[in-house]
Design a protein around this nucleic acid. Structure first.
Lengths: 122, 122
DNA sequence: CTAACATATGAACATATATTCATATGTTGT
DNA sequence: ACAACATATGAATATATGTTCATATGTTAG
């Protein structure tokens, strides 16, 4: 991302420390990467979706059962499932008129359980 | 949360599967827990904050250096740092007129690096 | 004390997001 | 074909969130 070497820290620049800044920039992730990372965490950053993912991490469930378990309306659940589906965090299969959802990302399972651990031990 | 045993799955209830729902409820986290988990991930779910946390994971930086590195205004950075400070994800120390920030949560360091790994390998 | 500076913060604004309601889609059983 | 049902989705609404601008706070140097 940064091609030039870091110049000496001559510090004409107010408080900024050019050399430190230059080093830090070299080690920083790109806008695009940061955005993608944020995207994943954003999906985990909603109470309803946390509940959905957590119950799906235990067993496959159909939409109306998810709604019953987390006590939310079918429509709200369905909207959230769409987001999770689009991001491929959940998998679904159709069986007759029912749609069965389950967790489809071991990485997310791990992040989720770490998040839960985190709040349980502090 | 659920004190009663799960009744047999007599299924008078439309599509819902009472026994499955009952079991799933027993294994589900509380509203409060889900909210706290979401709270953490919400903090990781913004591009600017991901960038801030990522650069702070490498080294301690003062506010205006953070702003320079991630190329954002001082005010925006300061506002975000407040959120991170309140959640104790970052630590800060004052040195004269400067404020030095660093990452203060190994759990978050781990979540962050997993998030970055995740998007890099897919 | 004053000026310059680093940081913090309140208010305003624009944008994003979650939920609800109404309705569409698609399946099953009669 | 029709009715009942499970799910999906568009539109509307309310709320939350991020950034900017202006300004406040607090520190240092002169």
């Amino acid at each position: 991302m940064q091609t030039k070497e870091c110049p000496d820290d001559i510090c004409e620049q107010l408080c900024e420390h050019p050399q430190t800044i230059c080093l830090a920039k070299k080690e920083s992730i790109s806008d695009n990467e940061a955005q993608q990372v944020a995207e994943i965490f954003k999906l985990l950053g909603d109470t309803t979706r946390v509940k959905i993912l957590q119950v799906l991490s235990k067993r496959e469930l159909c939409v109306c059962d998810i709604a019953a378990v987390i006590e939310m309306g079918q429509s709200a659940v369905s909207h959230q499932l769409r987001l999770l589906r689009n991001a491929r965090l959940v998998r679904y299969r159709r069986e007759g008129k029912m749609a069965w959802y389950s967790l489809d990302d071991e990485h997310v399972r791990s992040l989720l359980s770490q998040g839960i651990d985190h709040i349980k031990h502090r």
